[in-house]
């Protein structure tokens, strides 16, 4: 009898807990602005073919560098392409770069950092040496060199930027893991007979992840910047594919007569960076369950 009631209690309690967790996120203004901002951007990128008023690559040499108008919202570039359509389609490239760079660098960096931090000994020393060398190398130059070596397709750009960012995630991960390793619950996990891998996957990484996710979110922003930089230098995704970096580069020739082209692309990048940073800060504040400790209790 009591157990049935207790089970109901437990289910109700779990539901209340979930609601409380959701409320924690929805009540954080920075997190909400960042999340909605990113959501909007994703919607724009996905709906680009329908949203864009023109083809982003169709040139019209009769109508170059046109002023903004009802048909060309942000005017046209020196090839007569619709700038607004190019920016809308450009969001796809930027988001892909941001997403995949974070995905790759977060998973690789997390594992490398966690193994280095947890294993200790020669393995840690070797991994730390590699991480330090990669960190000492300017990441943009590293990406530049990799793209130059592999050819400038979207894949190779993502890979290049991801490789450049992995050591950052790994370094943060390792330092966080070093603070988790001596905590008693890790020793408790060893005492119940978990394998080192299980301990890393089930106890070390979940507890180390919050700060790492924040770093990763912020690196999505810098990855998007890096892609734009590569494109600007002509080493990114090749024209005529629309990317924000390409739009800035191409707008450069007309910067005195029609600054709106480069400026609007720059604003797109700035917007993305700002919402990602807001999201990162919001996650930092809300991800940690230790935070919850302080809300319920007063002493």
């Amino acid at each position: 009898m009591t157990t049935a009631i207790e089970t109901i209690d437990a289910v109700a309690e779990a539901a209340a807990r979930r609601r409380a967790a959701i409320r924690r996120y929805t009540r954080h203004p920075g997190f909400m602005i960042g999340a909605i901002g990113i959501l909007l951007l994703v919607m724009v990128a996905v709906a680009a073919p329908w949203l864009a008023p023109h083809s982003p690559t169709r040139t019209d040499l009769m109508n170059t560098l046109a002023r903004p108008s009802a048909t060309f919202w942000l005017g046209t570039d020196q090839f007569g392409r619709c700038v607004a359509s190019r920016l809308i389609h450009g969001a796809q490239v930027s988001l892909q770069v941001g997403f995949f760079v974070v995905l790759i660098s977060l998973s690789a960096g997390t594992i490398i950092g966690a193994v280095a931090g947890y294993a200790g000994g020669w393995l840690e020393r070797a991994l730390v040496a590699v991480i330090d060398i990669l960190l000492a190398f300017p990441s943009f130059l590293l990406a530049l060199a990799l793209v130059a070596a592999r050819g400038n397709t979207l894949d190779s750009i993502i890979l290049a930027v991801a490789i450049a960012y992995t050591p950052r995630v790994a370094a943060v991960m390792r330092s966080v893991v070093l603070t988790i390793r001596p905590r008693p619950f890790i020793e408790a996990s060893r005492a119940i007979g978990l394998t080192p891998w299980t301990i890393v996957l089930r106890h070390v990484i979940p507890n180390a992840l919050p700060p790492v996710i924040v770093v990763a979110t912020v690196s999505a922003a810098t990855a998007i910047l890096a892609e734009a930089g590569l494109s600007f230098l002509g080493l990114g995704v090749q024209p005529p594919t629309p990317t924000w970096g390409n739009v800035i580069a191409e707008g450069q020739t007309a910067i005195t007569t029609n600054p709106l082209i480069s400026l609007s692309a720059g604003l797109c990048i700035a917007y993305t960076v700002v919402v990602l940073n807001l999201l990162g800060d919001g996650l930092r504040d809300t991800l940690d369950p230790q935070m919850r400790r302080n809300t319920g209790k007063l002493l």
Partner: peptide, 23 residues
Amino acid sequence: ALRAMRPRMQMVFQDPYGSLDPR
């Protein structure tokens, strides 16, 4: 072999706060 022995020999820790995974 040591892991196989672990179920038979266990430990309780001093710090009731730190010895449980907070997540």
